[in-house]
Amino acid sequence: MAADNTIKLHYDVPNDDFTRAGEASSDLKGKLKQMGISPDAIRKVSIALYEGEINMVIHANGGYIDAEISENGLKLVLCDTGPGINDIVQATQAGFSTALEQTRMLGFGAGMGLPNMLQNTDDMIIDSIVGVGTTITMFIKM
């Protein structure tokens, strides 16, 4: 596919609005379905992006998501200006979480977010600077 056939989408993730978390994942899922992408790939995208959105809301006061769909697959860039991740290796271990009890009451914060994202992507890069923010780039083959 030529570069001009690449589809680009942009989503803003609202600051601290838990009820709206997942709207970007839902919209992207609908678009991929319309494009005839395989259910397996859509499931991976849905899980990875939804966990990312939830993380942005509960840890980082929102941010934005850029999606780029090409013939090779889907590239997702999740960017926030939150507190950053102090120890990335530790943060990606299943069960490790810095979420507050309040977040756990909402059904998240079990330390499965980043592991679920890693599990459902073909490539994932985490760039984070404490006090500046976090950018996560994910790639999923389609």
Partner: peptide, 24 residues
């Protein structure tokens, strides 16, 4: 009650039983 567990482990579910009650 943990939605992250559903995302990680509910492979072929078409029914979800939960005590969590929020939009997520």
């Amino acid at each position: 009650d943990m939605m992250s567990d559903c995302l990680a482990f509910a492979k072929d579910a078409n029914v979800l039983i939960t005590g969590l009650c929020n939009p997520q």
